[in-house]
Design a binder for these strands. Structure first.
Length: 139
DNA sequence: GCCAACGTTGGC
DNA sequence: GCCAACGTTGGC
């Protein structure tokens, strides 16, 4: 099982939108970047991901679960792009900010910190554990 | 609102 | 296949 991180602008589609979809989940549409798409194609049902708010908040606010593997993105006719479906699992009791990630030992290699433009990115098990702890979730 | 970083496009 | 121009993302 793998770990990921999804970025979204909260005023377009934020954590509250995701939780409103409940267990039915929602397609993670709109990715138009090969690296991000390739990451989605590597996802399996049951993989977990962090939900990050870019621009506003700049913090990891919750955890989502992949509930459908990559399939064509219904928001475009361009066959190059597809997307997974995710559902909200739980919110972080204490959202973890970008600022905290930047200074936390063990997180300096995260794409979140040094490749700010990648909107869907892999997270290592070590990074996952560190952020869960910072976010107030039991390990 | 600005700008740096980066990805993509298209001319050659 | 190279590279300049352009567009977009996202932190500040």
């Amino acid at each position: 099982m793998a770990y990921w991180l999804f970025k979204s602008e909260p005023d377009v589609f934020g954590w509250s939108h995701q939780t409103a979809k409940g267990d039915a989940g929602e397609e993670w549409t709109g990715v138009r970047n090969y690296q991000a798409r390739n990451n989605m194609r590597a996802m399996k049902v049951g993989d977990l991901g962090f939900f990050y708010h870019s621009n506003i908040g700049k913090e990891i606010v919750g955890i989502v679960e992949v509930i459908r593997e990559s399939a064509p993105d219904s928001t475009t006719d361009d066959p190059r792009w597809d997307c997974v479906m995710v559902r909200a699992v739980k919110a972080l009791p204490n959202p973890v900010t970008l600022e905290e990630c930047k200074v936390e030992p063990g997180l300096e290699k995260m794409a979140l910190v040094n490749n700010t433009r990648l909107s869907v990115q892999p997270v290592t098990a070590e990074e996952w554990a560190i952020i869960c702890r910072m976010g107030g979730l039991p390990a």
